[in-house]
Amino acid sequence: MSEVIVITSGKGGVGKTTTSANLGCGLAIQGKKVALVDADIGLRNLDVVMGLENRIVYDLVDVVEGNCRLKQALIKDKRYEGLFLLPAAQTRDKDAVSPEQMKKLCDNLKEEGFDYIIIDCPAGIEQGFRNAIAGADRAIVVTTPEVSAVRDADRIIGLLEANELRNPMLILNRLRVDLVQKGDMMNIEDVTEILAVDILGVVPDDESIVIATNKGEPAVSNPDSRAGQAYRNIVRRIMGEEVPIMSFEAKQEGFFDKLMGLFRH
């Protein structure tokens, strides 16, 4: 069975591309055949986050326009068996592709035998968004615990449902446990209650993501990264496993922790 999952958010800068890269790698590590599709035409970035920027010959627009075969444009990631990237075109814009063409592209990728096709959606709600969701079977909405990001996520969830993508799953990204504990950041329940969607996972704000992105090696492959662990859990949930939201993802400070905190200074 083959599934097309679009990663979207409405607001820019909340972590769509990082999430796409980590879920793609994570699923490949689990032995799945994965195609990562960068639908952000004109502002391609998934290639650099993946560390594959030097290997691009053809791109998504070349495939759609028939300048090359699909297989020629798919970059094979040598680090992870079964992981491929279809990069976005950098010198074109969103109008270069239509939703019908994207739908056909997704069908062709399914025929290639991919288990998961992950589409990194551009920010916004215009043509690029419509293209990215056209061929999707499922949607994952990424947000951060901020008023602006959750507001945009709410709008996106409405638009997804209007386009027959029901029950999108939510990833709450960049949660600062220390701020939540002080009451200075919305917590998981606040956000899920407001958006009325199921939570797929919570990714803590973690400097290992910055380091991973600098190197072009997604954090999901780093066993010491907390964000990487959160992504590994999300990957298992996508594959249908029941994995509880882990304690570090939503760490509740107990009495003992508080007591220890007193003596730490």
């Binding site: 008023v147 959750v150 939540v180 009451g183 200075d184 950041m185 919305m186």
Partner: peptide, 9 residues
């Protein structure tokens, strides 16, 4: 401020 954010949202 977390509660303020939630109410405003």
């Amino acid at each position: 401020s977390g509660s303020v954010a939630k109410d405003r949202l």
